[in-house]
Design a protein around this nucleic acid. Structure first.
Length: 153
DNA sequence: GCCAACGTTGGC
DNA sequence: GCCAACGTTGGC
C-alpha cells in the first residue's frame, strides 16, 4: 500500500464536492503535468490511500483522506472538445493524460493546515514543504502519513 | 541540444 | 498583486 497527496483548488473542486458525489466517488481529472501523470498512470494502485489537499485558498492544508478505488486509466476529458482539459494531441490509441477514481474515506473535523505541517519537524521531509514543489500529485511516506493522522485526533 | 520567452502554480 | 520556481514552447 502506498500513500499520496492530491492537490485541488477548493474553488474549483473541494472535498465537499467529492462528498456530494454519488457513492462519494469521482474521477481525479484534469492533471496536466507529466510527472504527476506518470504517478497516476504507473504508480497509484487500487487500495492506496491519499490525502485531499486544498491549495490556493484562505487556509491551505489537508482536509481529508480518500481511497484509490480505480488505478490509472485515460482521462476522458482529454478527448472532449468541450472540456477545459481537452487536448487535441491526444488520441484513443495514444492517450496522453491519465486519471484515477477516488472515494472519500473521511473528511477531517479540522484542517491540518500547511502552517501546522511546516511547524512539525517530523514532517520536514514531506515533498509538500520542499522548495520549488508544485506537483499536484506527490507521494507521502508511511511515517509522514501516520504523523498527520495523529494530528487529526 | 541550447536557451530565451512565456505560462503556470501556489504561498503569502 | 507579487514573486519564486518550475515547465513548456519554439527559433536557431
Amino acid at each position: 500500500m502506498h500513500y499520496w497527496l492530491l492537490k485541488s483548488e477548493p474553488a474549483g473542486y473541494s472535498i465537499d464536492d467529492l462528498a456530494k458525489h454519488k457513492k462519494q466517488t469521482d474521477k481525479w481529472e484534469g492533471v496536466r503535468n507529466f510527472q504527476a501523470r506518470n504517478m497516476l498512470r504507473d504508480d497509484m494502485h487500487a487500495g492506496d490511500h491519499a490525502f485531499f489537499y486544498h491549495s490556493s485558498c484562505a487556509e491551505p492544508g489537508i482536509v481529508g483522506m480518500v481511497n484509490i478505488v480505480k488505478a490509472g486509466y485515460p482521462d476522458p476529458t482529454q478527448f472532449d472538445p468541450g472540456s477545459k482539459y481537452y487536448d487535441p494531441k491526444s488520441t484513443d490509441e495514444k492517450p496522453i493524460w491519465y486519471t484515477v477514481d477516488v472515494q472519500l474515506i473521511k473528511k477531517f473535523k479540522t484542517i491540518i493546515s500547511l502552517a501546522a505541517i511546516k511547524h512539525d519537524p517530523q514532517l520536514a521531509t514531506m515533498q509538500l514543504v520542499k522548495r520549488g514543489n508544485r506537483l499536484s500529485v506527490m507521494p507521502v511516506s508511511s511515517i509522514e502519513w501516520q504523523t498527520i493522522l495523529d494530528m487529526t485526533s
